[in-house]
């Protein structure tokens, strides 16, 4: 099994953020992955999608599904992350107040992605954009 999926994440509609994650979640369920793996992929990808919509005007999601791992790459052309170490701290947020009124922006996005993935790589350049690569391993 080697399934590759691609999604555009629109940046102008907060209500649609999470659509791609929902589709991936259902796909993994259909394929018979363990509930723990399905949930970890879904949450990590969902947080990433929300981040792309809040901070970067949307982007793209590429998912590769292998029997022993799921890799999600989220790429945007937003402002980039000036201080990754700071952004990784729980509670640190640069989200505007209107995002907090929607239930997000508590500074838990990146820490959560790290918590639910086995590996997380952040490739970011200020003014150019960010690519997150998260891998969730299927433990046999």
């Amino acid at each position: 099994m080697n399934i590759k999926l691609h999604y555009d994440v629109p940046g102008d509609d907060f209500t649609r953020a999470g659509e791609a994650s929902g589709l991936v979640k259902r796909k993994l369920k259909q394929l018979g992955f363990e509930p723990d793996v399905v949930r970890r992929v879904a949450i990590a990808m969902y947080e990433g999608e929300i981040n792309m919509v809040i901070h970067a005007g949307g982007g793209e999601a590429d998912v590769e599904i292998l029997p022993d791992r799921v890799t999600v790459v989220l790429t945007d052309h937003g402002p980039g992350i000036p201080d990754v170490e700071q952004a990784m701290q729980e509670g640190w947020s640069t989200a505007p107040d209107n995002v907090r009124s929607l239930g997000f922006g508590a500074g838990m996005g990146l820490p959560n992605i790290k918590k639910y993935s086995d590996t997380l790589e952040i490739d970011t350049k200020v003014g150019e954009g960010t690519a997150l690569t998260m891998t969730i391993l299927v433990k046999g």
């Binding site: 209500t15 953020a17 239930g103 997000f104 508590a106 996005g109 820490p111 959560n112």
Partner: peptide, 23 residues
């Protein structure tokens, strides 16, 4: 705060909230 739900919830089946949006 949906961020907190995503961070700390584990195996809870019911969510009580005063927040109303698709997220």
């Amino acid at each position: 705060m949906m961020s907190d739900v995503l961070a700390f919830v584990k195996d809870q089946s019911v969510l009580l909230t005063g927040l109303v949006n698709t997220q």
